[in-house]
Design a binder for these strands. Sequence first.
RNA 1: GCCGCUAUGGUGUAAGUGGUUAACACGCCGCCCUCUCAAGGCGGAGAGUACGGGUUCGAGUCCCGUUAGCGGUACCA
Length: 499
Amino acid sequence: MADTVRVRFAPSPTGYLHVGGARTALFNWLYARSHDGVFVLRIEDTDIQRSSEAMVQGILDGMLWLGLDPDEGPFFQSSFVAQHREAARRLVKEGKAYYDFTPKEGGDDRTVGERIADRARAQGVGKERNPYRDLLVAEALARVEAGEPAAIRLKVPEDGFSAFEDLVYGRQERAYSDIEDLVLIRSDGHPLYNLSVVVDDIEMRITHVIRGQDHLTNTHKQVLLYEALGAPVPRFAHLPLIFAPGREKLSKRKHGEVVSVTTYRDRGFLPDALVNFLALLGWSPGTDQEILSRDELIRLFSLEAVNKSSAVFNFHESDPHDWTDPKALWMNAEYLRAMPIGELAKLVAEELKRAGIWREEYAGDKREWFESTIDLLRARYRTVPDFVELGRPYFSDDFEYEPPALKKNLKDERLGELLPALADRLARIGEFTHESTEAALREFSEARQVKAGLLINAARTALTGQSVGPGMFDIMVALGKEKTVSRLRNAVEKVGAAV
RNA sequence: GCCGCUAUGGUGUAAGUGGUUAACACGCCGCCCUCUCAAGGCGGAGAGUACGGGUUCGAGUCCCGUUAGCGGUACCA
């Protein structure tokens, strides 16, 4: 029996959980679930200046909402620094790492990229051999003991090459000569990323490291560390990156809220819909099926089917209607239409409460009405808040008449007389049904020699303030006789008003 | 600079070991339905697979080169 699969999601809390991180978390989660494995959450908070409690909470909130529950953790990397230091000291003692007494370079005003390029140009090809690499361990220890600051660097072999088999990208090779002796511990004692991840992953017995492709080339350094520490090297699977339109890096700062998963929660996305959408960014089941439940995703997911090229998360920042990727919106609408009506009703109820137009009877006597009204509306809405924004006239008498709708449907002066008369006619109906209201209206239109369409469209606007919506008679039934009659009468003042 | 990864319509993806007019979804356009808008049904436009060579009877699939984008290269993560 093979060892239990153990994977981890290891975000650094320097920002909220964005769609890229969420996708990484999702793939780890899917892999764990499909292999009866363990999904560990580890917060990499060693960069104290850039990390914050709020960001940690944001990440946790996002994962909780998406249903990506960790089996272990959250662990905090900052609590393991003693182990990181210990591991580095051990490597020094074993001659696999060394103290570097070269004074730390002062920061300057060039960007990191410029500094690297400059240094590379100055140095030429190939790396310089560090003079402290061969210093006797005893001597180095003595100098450290005496208080001289020193960083710890790993001894990278001078000849040969590193190789590992990536589950997504295939075999990866890199000459040792291209890898410099990486710093494990800063001269101020702070352990650095490559050391920390490896030590933690060993400690947590991670079997599969699934993370963004931005870590692909540095993986060689980590493999070296596993070997130096005498630990089994895990399997690696790097995921293609997700970009913003224009193929630029997703950034919370530049792209704002559209990339934060909590935004999707707050703007009425269903977690299953976002999970489904995210799963299809960089992965495909290989069939035409795109609507995939969580169980189907778990059953079908495989790292081998993950593709290598980066994907674009196609949102259009400034468009209020298509504020995020149109396919994500479509998928959410698809889930909205397919989910059990009772569940949707609960979500809409929350939304109505927040808007202050919730009525307890919707959960009691009028429950059936409430659900059928939601059912009537759901075919044309894409997110939950749509039920309160666009659906407001169905749940509250306090709604706006949209000027374009008035102009389109209530500009005919005859309506000033027709609408109240229609209201009177409808008031005489016994039972308000689709059939009875339609019969009454058609009869009325014939008697008055006006087209039914004129009355129908005018009534829709009179009743909802909108020019679009469900079938007219469905609206009447949904509103009921009393509201229908009074709104028709009250709309008289709107006739011709918008022109 | 050096090292590496990637490249199929606007976007997401498909096209076992090379083999018919490059498929699906979103989006867009049109038609049907119809009182409007959706949903649904039907249809259409949109890529000849970054570019250039090569191998082959045959290449999106293999090889070489170029270009572009991205990543890494740090006493950041």
